[in-house]
Amino acid sequence: MILTIAFKELRSLLAAPSTWLVLAVLQFILAWFFLARLDAFLQMQPQLAQLANAPGATQAIVVPLFAAAALFMMLLIPVFTMRMISEERRNQTMTLLATAPVSSMQIVLGKFSGLLLFLLPMVLICLLMGLTLDAGTQLDKGLLLANTLGLLLLAASYAALGLYISSLTAQPAMAAIAALAALFGLWLVEASATDNDNAWRMIAPTSHFENLNVGLLNSGDVAYFVLFCAFFLLLAARRLDNNRIYG
């Protein structure tokens, strides 16, 4: 049942021309960024060679690429999550799901997995760009995989938050702006926390992504992302239940 809803969401995302436009633009920018970093690396290589512990290609190219992709995720995911629930409420198609023998949690999980299926290629494309470096140099596979996992978890947590915000309103535009504001707010919390051990830093997904970004895979960060997703998905499911109560 979750998969039925997931594939339907995936299909309707892919049926919209705007999706393809956004994906194409994203890919263009990331590829540009990737090539620019590669170019810079090749020019810097003679100087780097003289350093004792010089950063390798993976660290010099892939890490900034994923950091940039993480920033784009923050800007783009609200665009994809905005319609998920709010448009169904506005077009009154939610009734179909609400009166079908599926629970609110299944609806939310279905929509969330549909989004993940859609975001997965975006993450994989970054991985593929990194893997092309393998043709010319020795890659740090561990760092590459940690980054891929990090970007995927970050995208999932943004999607969960976006989905919840989409369930709060019947206006997709409102949902997009509010989700962007929330993600930006979380990022600001992290950016404004001067102290590295500050507890405020801990609540921002970006700070946990940074660890994975530099190749530090620890279970605390992964647990954070899982809890973050679970929290907002639960809230979204509760919100759908409440819609039946408050009408």
Binding site: K8, R11, S12, A15, A16, N91, Q92, T93
Partner: peptide
């Protein structure tokens, strides 16, 4: 009252 149709399908 409003048929719950996904218009893009």
């Amino acid at each position: 009252e409003t048929p719950p149709l996904y218009k893009d399908m």
